[in-house]
Amino acid sequence: MTDTMTEVAVVAFAESPRVRRNDSTTNGVEMLVPIFRQLFDTTGLTKDDVGFWCSGSSDYLAGRAFSFVTAVDAIGAFPPTSESHVEMDGAWALYEAWVKLLMGEAEIALVYGFGKSSAGLLRRVLALQLDPYVQAPLWPDSVSIAALQARLGIEAGLWSEKEMAAIAIQRRGLPESVEDLLEQPFVADPLRKHDCAPITDGAAAIVLATGARARELCERPAWITGFEHRTDSQHFGLRDLTTAASATAAARAAIGGNVDVAELHAPFTHQEILLRNALGLGDAVRISPSGGALDGNPMFAAGLARIGWAAAEIHAGRAGRALGHATSGPALQQNLVCVMEGR
């Protein structure tokens, strides 16, 4: 252990267009090549400068085995390079890369997440992330599970359909009024279409760098000051679904002070309110200026993109401290918080 801890910063971020369906294969290569090029153009790096690569994606989403191995083609991994993968959102891959850099095993890491959500019936595919004995065999879909959570909060007086609609209007820039939206039919009572993130194909990528390298690559790096992830039980019955204890625990460990802006990975409108409460974010905190997951939710990339957009607020000088949040699993089961600051 050295006396001075290695510091790591997000120095660049790129995201592919958020579209309902693109022409990419499920291994993501076609989405990844352009955003890697964008990162290399921004930083002046080449693939040979990257000491560690890490990705987040899912074979269940792709419908093929080892899709992430095919995705490695996009990084040009010959001669062999140091590479890893998580079967989770790319935000968890970012965590792995951050640890790798803190350990001094690399100075620069490139982290990516990708998902062609449109390839299968997304809400059905996601049933396979549930307990495989007593839940998954019933094929409960992800939207219905979120709806069970939404009703619990509405009936407990923690949020309302009106507040949920107002969030949809804000994040997605909808032209309708709250009253208009509340006249729409339910998708899964009490959720309407505007309450649910759109199905999105896409990818996101982030470059992490240590100390002096970060300052060379970026005028105002987003230095990571807290990075924590926690998980709640997979048994719904054991959880209070009107909050997310894992999000609160991650935030307590990671935040350490106020933040100016928070990018929240809330695929459903009520989850934004839930997360603001669980993370302890006051009214002064700007929420998801990117539009958040409600404006585009590429599976396995949207959480990483939240951290990227939070970092972008620091890069642009619009925020001194920024929080990026990512979630995984049903009804906000797993939560990750990354806090960054500009200096």
């Binding site: 809400r123 619990l152 959720l191």
Partner: peptide, 13 residues
């Protein structure tokens, strides 16, 4: 304790 409505069930439910 809470419920939602599935107007168009999907395969396997």
């Amino acid at each position: 304790l809470t419920w939602t409505w599935m107007p168009r069930p999907i395969e396997g439910q």
